[in-house]
Design a protein around this nucleic acid. Structure first.
Lengths: 235, 235
DNA sequence: CGGCGCGTTGACTGTAGTCAAATAAAGTGG
DNA sequence: CCACTTTATTTGACTACAGTCAACGCGCCG
């Protein structure tokens, strides 16, 4: 489904964080002209690995996972994309990763040929993409640090904090209560463990008072500091 | 130590892979004018986390690790940089990661203010950096996949293959025999385990005929396929 | 109501981490 | 160049944690 109101950018929630933020009004108008809003439902595949990359997009709302299959046919998630993030391969002919909506999501989609023309004409746009890519690179390295931790409890704690930060309305500070956008299986895939271990560690973190579960997906962060350091509260 | 021969770029070994590859002769001359070769010894710190980022560089030869300290003061490696790779923070004021030479290394160093001016004047340079950053992002995600594997043996096998590929003279194909650029501790840091486990799994891989050790650092890949799939050769 | 898909829990096994010691390699000073 | 010190790597014994297989509970939809 599509929609493209004339004043689309004016009230766009990621207007100031996405690549568009770097552009002046004329450039924004040009970009806006080739962009198309598109809505996806949770579980929808946005791009599939191996597809020709015919489009790229800014994520306006919702969350997306990027994943690949490993040798045994098990899904391995390599990144999460949050609002204002950029999706799509720019230089390679084909997409390397699956992009799947984790929640209902809205994208601002650009056909690649036109987008690349715009990049060629407007260095500022190229620069904006560069900054965005660097941000993603930093995020990816942050994830590398996270999943390099030796015990599952530490990896899971870090993941919960990362998800809490992402769920927070503002870039800083973290939501005390939020819904997990990942299933147990997805969490396990991301931090390199099994569904059962995720479940057990969650139970343990709850028993120790660091978190509280509200149903299967609801989560309350009760002690963010302890989650960071791996220490349970004493007394 | 420095050196800057007039024809520096002509016989540069990474001339066709680094960011310079995208530039025409005039642009290359300009870039070359602000670039300075610098040599580092194994173990030298190139940039330290927290430094003001006053320079960036292309790695000409050797290998570099990017790392950060975790909460317990243990080093966590988040990336390896190989020849033609780019080092240095472009937008942030300070460097987020330590960059340490894993082997003797040679860099082509650019002062940041001049480099950024060049980027502003030459969109092609910005675009080249963008492509390079995307490549690094892909590599980082590849690493994420690698270290997300559940058992140490699989993570270590993947690491050995990655190191073999990096040691190969040409981008494709892998060196059958090469020297490990990482200590046991560094390997453990990278794949999220301990020195002892690395050592034990190496012994096991050698016993099963997948690899052969030549002293502490020398390594021969005997069965690349088995390393990939995790299966030992039968019969 | 019955059959899913998803999550939790239990029992057991195996792998990886810890502590400690032995060995090999590398660096130092004579 | 050698003897000695220091550091890196391997190995051993033990423990703890995580993976596997299996059962159970829950919510959802036909």
């Amino acid at each position: 489904m599509r929609s493209r109101p004339a004043d689309a950018c004016a009230d766009c929630p990621v207007r100031d964080q996405a690549i568009c933020a770097a552009l002046d009004q004329d450039e924004l108008n040009e970009l806006s002209r080739i962009g198309d809003h598109r809505d996806y439902r949770r579980g929808d595949t946005i791009f599939a690995a191996g597809d020709e990359g015919i489009a790229c997009a800014t994520l306006i709302s919702g969350a997306v996972k990027l994943s690949a299959m490993d040798a045994e046919g098990v899904e391995r998630i390599v990144a999460l994309v949050h609002p204002s993030g950029f999706l799509g391969q720019l230089f390679a002919a084909t997409t390397a990763l699956d992009a799947v909506a984790l929640t209902d999501a809205r994208l601002c989609v650009f056909p690649r040929p036109q987008f690349e023309r715009l990049m060629a004409d407007h260095p500022k746009l190229t620069r904006a993409i560069l900054e965005r890519t660097q941000t993603e690179l930093e995020a990816s390295r942050g994830l590398t640090r996270l999943i390099g931790r030796r015990d599952v409890k530490a990896r899971l704690s870090g993941l919960l904090l990362a998800l809490a930060r992402a769920a927070a309305p503002t870039p800083c500070g973290q939501a005390m209560e939020f819904d997990l956008i990942l299933s147990r299986e997805e969490m396990a895939s991301l931090i390199g463990t099994t569904i059962e271990s995720v479940s057990r560690r969650l139970t343990e973190l709850e028993r120790d008072g660091l978190i509280e579960r509200r149903g299967a997906r609801g989560l309350v962060i009760r002690d963010a500091l302890a989650l960071e350091t791996g220490e349970a509260v004493r007394g």
